[in-house]
Design a protein around this nucleic acid. Structure first.
Lengths: 136, 136
DNA sequence: TCTTGACTTGGACTCTGTCCATCGTAGGAT
DNA sequence: ATCCTACGATGGACAGAGTCCAAGTCAAGA
């Protein structure tokens, strides 16, 4: 993620302090923060950053493919910067903790053409649910 | 679903007109309604039914395992009465339409024990995303 | 340094869902 | 058939997550 800012500059992004801080907060490979958590962490470095800006920036990072949205059923969306290596998620039904997991095989490949109903299928999201050691 | 009411009575449910109407609305094998859609359809038969009752009843049906919750990323939760036959979902990123699909193999089986981190994994939810013929 | 349009702000707003005090009624008891 | 009562329904207030917008700010090219 160290070169994320480089890549963004290359895409014509204006490098504001707000965007820099959001990118820094998302740094790391096993981070799954909610928008509000990102906002809270960003505000430690840049107290006046607004929620709207955090939402905007996260949305832009998602549509650029730099960050993945993980929906955790009812709870708030989480943002996963580990978008460069394919993986799935294991979510604790108790506390909402998220872990990256790597199932065998390609989950897209197991959907037969006859089951695609003319859709252009571009993506699969696999979410395993269960109780983590602390909640179990 | 015709015998859903029988099953519910068997579980000690009090059969109120509200619950009957919600069950009727959910009748069918490829229905994926939001709570508000269920409420709107139910209100056509029973105009004074409240949103709270619809939410309560849907929640009860889910915890009884009669109905499955389908989370569609940001949009409202959808309720799928086809809980008796295992299946996954194909969601259109354009219009939000949901179709039932049946991938090959058991998605739970492809997650190695080493990738479970001590969780008691009880469930998998596979969501294929893409554009439907109308939106593509 | 100046200019300009992209970016940020914050507060109001929407949408989805929950909570709770009060009222109504299904269905067993008589 | 009627009565009782606990379970269920009601609706309005509330809460959390996210969006929108008009006005102000500033990064970066000229």
């Amino acid at each position: 993620m160290s070169d994320l800012l480089e890549r963004l500059r290359g895409r014509g992004w204006r490098l504001t302090s707000q965007r820099r801080v959001v990118a820094q907060v998302l740094d790391g490979d096993h981070v799954h923060l909610t928008a509000d958590e990102v906002h809270a962490l960003a505000a430690r470095r840049l107290p006046e950053i607004s929620r709207a800006t955090v939402y905007n920036t996260l949305g832009e990072l998602v549509s650029l493919g730099e960050v993945i949205e993980v929906s955790t059923a009812g709870r708030a969306m989480r943002y996963d910067p580990n978008a460069r290596h394919p993986h799935q998620h294991l979510v604790c039904s108790g506390c909402g903790t998220v872990r990256d997991v790597h199932p065998n095989g390609d989950p897209l490949a197991v959907l037969p053409a006859a089951e695609r109903f003319g859709f252009t299928v571009s993506d699969v999201e696999v979410t395993y649910r269960g109780l983590c050691p602390s909640c179990g």
